[in-house]
Amino acid sequence: MDETDLKILQAIASLGTHSPSKVQEETGIPESTIYYRLDKLREKGIIKNDLYDLDNEKLGLGITIIVEVVATYKEGYHHKIGEKLSEIEGVSQVHFTMGERDFVVIAHVPDRKGVERLISDFESVDEVQRTQSKYTITTIKNEPRVVNTYSIESLISTLSTNNELED
């Protein structure tokens, strides 16, 4: 990965499209180069898919719930319990964490009944000892494309430091 790849990825993230013509307009990189680089980034697994981002609120899933989960400790428990939590309808993220809580889970539900169902589903997982849930009142920032949260200089510096930047 090099600076050209990073510029392409950043353009895709900021434009919200992987259209080579739009990326070319944004970066000045020739479309043929963009096609080639995108194929290589897919082969390396850096680009996972070409999905469009959806507006959860307009889909009727506007309530975001953040749930902290304490679970029963056993060897390798985080994989087993994490999978169970992942299977609960509405759950979009499961993070195994350090500290007083074992997991942080993000879910999106349509209404209060959805919240009640979600909590009931968590309680039905045998290994879950307790949960602490928070309603999100207003989302200030929700950037699904992490590359948008960094400057190109920071990305280049990070990759250079980690010896992942090719000449």
Rank of each mutant, 00 (worst) to 15 (best):
residue 150 Y to G: 01
residue 135 Y to C: 00
residue 58 K to Q: 11
residue 24 Q to E: 15
residue 47 I to W: 09
residue 58 K to F: 10
residue 117 R to E: 08
residue 129 Q to D: 07
residue 11 A to Q: 07
residue 134 K to T: 05
residue 107 A to M: 06
residue 148 N to Y: 12
residue 103 F to Y: 12
residue 17 T to Y: 05
residue 130 R to E: 13
residue 39 D to E: 15
residue 4 T to W: 00
residue 111 D to G: 05
residue 164 E to R: 14
residue 106 I to F: 10
residue 130 R to M: 03
residue 149 T to A: 13
residue 126 D to E: 15
residue 161 T to R: 14
residue 41 L to F: 01
residue 163 N to A: 07
residue 31 E to M: 06
residue 130 R to P: 00
residue 158 T to G: 02
residue 117 R to C: 00
residue 100 E to I: 10
residue 61 L to S: 02
residue 157 S to N: 10
residue 76 G to T: 06
residue 133 S to C: 04
residue 23 V to E: 03
residue 81 I to H: 10
residue 22 K to S: 14
residue 38 L to M: 14
residue 103 F to E: 03
residue 157 S to A: 14
residue 15 L to V: 15
residue 153 E to F: 12
residue 14 S to C: 02
residue 18 H to K: 06
residue 49 N to A: 11
residue 63 I to G: 01
residue 146 V to D: 06
residue 109 V to N: 04
residue 73 Y to F: 10
residue 41 L to V: 06
residue 118 L to P: 09
residue 49 N to T: 11
residue 116 E to P: 01
residue 77 Y to W: 14
residue 152 I to N: 09
residue 46 I to P: 03
residue 60 G to H: 04
residue 10 Q to H: 11
residue 112 R to T: 03
residue 74 K to N: 12
residue 28 G to Y: 12
residue 12 I to M: 15
residue 9 L to C: 07
residue 106 I to A: 15
residue 9 L to E: 11
residue 90 G to A: 10
residue 87 E to W: 05
residue 119 I to T: 03
residue 33 T to R: 09
residue 66 I to H: 00
residue 165 L to K: 11
residue 43 E to Y: 07
residue 163 N to T: 05
residue 9 L to I: 11
residue 88 I to P: 08
residue 136 T to N: 04
residue 150 Y to V: 04
residue 146 V to P: 01
residue 95 H to G: 00
residue 8 I to K: 09
residue 62 G to S: 07
residue 81 I to L: 07
residue 117 R to F: 06
residue 12 I to A: 14
residue 116 E to R: 14
residue 40 K to H: 08
residue 70 V to G: 01
residue 62 G to R: 10
residue 144 P to Y: 05
residue 55 D to L: 13
residue 165 L to W: 09
residue 109 V to W: 06
residue 99 G to E: 01
residue 88 I to N: 05
residue 136 T to V: 15
residue 138 T to Q: 13
